[in-house]
Design a protein around this nucleic acid. Structure first.
Lengths: 335, 335
DNA sequence: GGCGTCTCTGTTAACGCTAACAAGAATCGG
DNA sequence: CCGATTCTTGTTAGCGTTAACAGAGACGCC
């Protein structure tokens, strides 16, 4: 593909200095005469010179790239995380290389991490919401800055995560506060930490209120599984309040309830989780829990940069509290 | 941050060969004795050696990384594109570096492209659905393999795109075939090519059927704007069929119609575009148009790889036809 | 005025890899 | 059995950058 761009020596020649001086200007080294700096800048502009990241990475042993390992980047949560991460990284002058994996098993994760490592990324963010991912992480080389997002709370890796438990507790409490006897729960898959946390929070809130938790309805994040659970819930007259592990499950539940003639929130109240942009336009508008993806992204990147700069590993941990967004899908129970 | 991993020479020493032989094994060069190959492989495994992509990129002048420039990666369309692109690229041994931009103006796009170029990406995919992006692309260096996705059909750049016109035509025709006199359209923003194409297809289908297109309802992709348009449509008794530029707009419309007591599809039929995973669980299940993001991703990557390998630029063009997915939101009009 | 110190710039040597060439060993046809 | 090929391996020279050191002036101080 045609010509390679100009190199540092070309700039140097044009500016009448050595390539090292150009390097110094580029890296903001203090001891360069102002006049020289300007000459170099002009030469850079004139030639349209662009530093070669590969060469720099080779000699410094580290590139200005952060690797992200994620699965399922079309789901709203992961997609938002990824986008927020990119934004934040760009602001810090880092590029983001995405290693999407089909499955979050040992092999896939290791392979993705390997690929990142061979490009000498400065650090790695693993969005690792399931168990198998956690295991894979323990086998990784120890000398790479690494942060886990939504990972296993019980593992000694730097971790940033949404406070699933608190969010679920708030959602459940919100329903109890409205006067409901108990709250049913449509969960996500059991191997996701997010699911487990949300189940725990739901259960905690009920137990604290002295209520025996009703049987769990297991879903898989999809509207389809929400719909199936909703069909069962709709036929149980004693059900008046449902907390679903995400908004898409809620959508499926709403649809099933609608088909069975159970009105929301008149007959049954529903609360979701995620606050997808469309949640306000469900029928009825969905009360839900909003995790702050931007905050998670900022925190992870900060944690990663700290590791990169200081060289210390350290098992830091940060938890971002989500907020309840009240809309029209919750009402007191009818008697 | 600790020790650098072993280099090629370390592997060579352990295997008792020259580093060049190691390089040959790594790159699948044919003329290496089987026995030597195995020794080298063993040494690689024993040391946990990982080739240094930066060094390779430096000497070959090209990394195994593809840069993607995109905006709004939380929207379903772009997010799916991105994910599909990552998958496909990974299969071809390429990493994907994402340059997310807040706005698709000159400056942002150029900056994102610059960042990619300084990392010596092998090629760039720009997801450029709006006008301003197209302009920015014309000023780019000519010697970089580049493919545009959803870009400006009138510009001489390699382009892969969903056939918006055909999809919109199919959606509109589907409603006409069901017996509707005319079809209303809630569009996306006018500076998106996707919007323009969908408007054109809608208009074409109507004109072909000898119908004068009713006034356009302009939206902005969001459920909120769909809701606002829906409120107007709901109050016009003559409206019996609506085609929305995406599924989220449709969701907003459905909600507004519901609030005004207009039943879907009994009173009004609705067709969307995108086939988001939840569309089947709207109330009622949404008939929509499904673009094949995987096919788009594959085509773009193929086009990019061709450019990378052959070195030829060329203004290729490929269009992926979308498919109508019939569900429950369309019925014949009542009289 | 000489000498140490500070500021600025240049020279040289890596970083880890591939490409190009070179050379030794093996194979083959006559 | 010899020269000509082919196969296999090694040697050398960069790729474009930063780091480390060295050197040339300018400046200040006793």
């Amino acid at each position: 593909m045609a010509v390679h761009g100009p190199a540092m020596t070309d700039v140097a020649r044009l500016a009448g200095v050595s390539h090292q001086t150009v390097s110094r200007v580029l890296n903001g080294h203090p001891n360069v005469r102002e006049q020289t700096r300007l000459r170099v800048r002009a030469a850079i502009a004139e030639l349209g010179y662009r530093p070669n990241g590969a060469a720099r990475a080779l000699v410094t042993g580290r590139s200005q790239v952060i690797g992200v390992v994620a699965q399922n980047t079309t789901l709203y949560g992961p997609a938002s995380m990824l986008a927020a991460l990119e934004q934040t990284a760009a602001e810090e002058g880092f590029a983001v290389s995405v290693g999407s994996v089909r499955n979050l098993d040992h092999r896939s994760i290791s392979a993705a991490v390997e690929r990142h490592l061979s490009h000498r990324v400065a650090g790695i963010v693993v969005i690792a919401p399931v168990e198998s991912a956690g295991e894979a992480l323990e086998r990784l080389p120890q000398d790479v800055p690494l942060v886990t997002v939504d990972g296993d709370p019980s593992r000694p890796v730097p971790l940033v995560t949404v406070d699933q438990v608190a969010g679920a507790r708030a959602a459940t409490q919100h329903l109890l506060d409205a006067g409901h006897r108990t709250v049913w729960h449509v969960s996500g898959p059991f191997d996701w930490f997010d699911s487990v946390g949300r189940i725990d929070g739901w259960r905690e809130a009920l137990l604290t209120a002295g209520v025996d938790p009703p049987p769990l309805m297991p879903g898989d994040w999809s509207a389809a599984s929400g719909y199936r659970c909703g069909q069962m819930l709709a036929r149980m007259p004693e059900v008046t309040a449902v907390f679903t592990a995400n908004d898409h499950l809620a959508l499926g539940v709403l649809r099933a309830l609608h088909e069975f003639g159970r009105r929301v929130p008149h007959d049954i109240s529903v609360v979701g989780f995620d606050d997808v942009p469309e949640a306000a336009y469900f029928i009825p508008p969905l009360t839900t829990v909003r995790p702050d993806f931007d905050a998670v992204a900022r925190a992870s990147l900060q944690m990663l940069l700290t590791q990169i700069e200081s060289g210390t590993g350290g098992a830091l941990r940060q938890t971002i509290a989500p907020a309840l967004v009240a809309r029209g899908s919750v009402a007191p129970p009818q008697r």
